[in-house]
């Protein structure tokens, strides 16, 4: 059963949002600076950190993605609230 939002939910969510901020910034930067090797190294390093953080979040609070990009326990977890605007 997926846990309801608690203090840890907000902490993990913010950590994920912080990693995603680095990644969206690097993505747009690399779209116009595709030959910056150091930026690509940093991108790949953060992409790996992001995967680990998302997995830790999903284990406690349920899937972040669907159409097969996240796993589900029983019963089907995706349809469970809260949705992003409700927290």
């Amino acid at each position: 059963m997926t846990k309801k939002p608690d203090e840890k939910y907000y902490k993990l969510l913010q950590e994920l949002q912080e990693l995603d901020f680095v990644l969206v910034e690097l993505t747009l930067y690399l779209d116009t600076h595709p030959n910056d090797l150091e930026a690509i190294k940093q991108f790949n390093q953060f992409a790996q950190k992001r995967q680990q953080k998302a997995r830790a979040f999903e284990l406690e609070y349920g899937p972040l993605l669907q159409f097969g990009h996240s796993f589900s326990r029983y019963p089907w977890e995706w349809k469970e609230a809260p949705w992003p605007w409700q927290v």
Partner: peptide
């Protein structure tokens, strides 16, 4: 597109 069940940045 794939939907992600989180906001890009917190809204309070």
């Amino acid at each position: 597109w794939i939907y992600e069940k989180k906001l890009q940045y917190p809204v309070r």
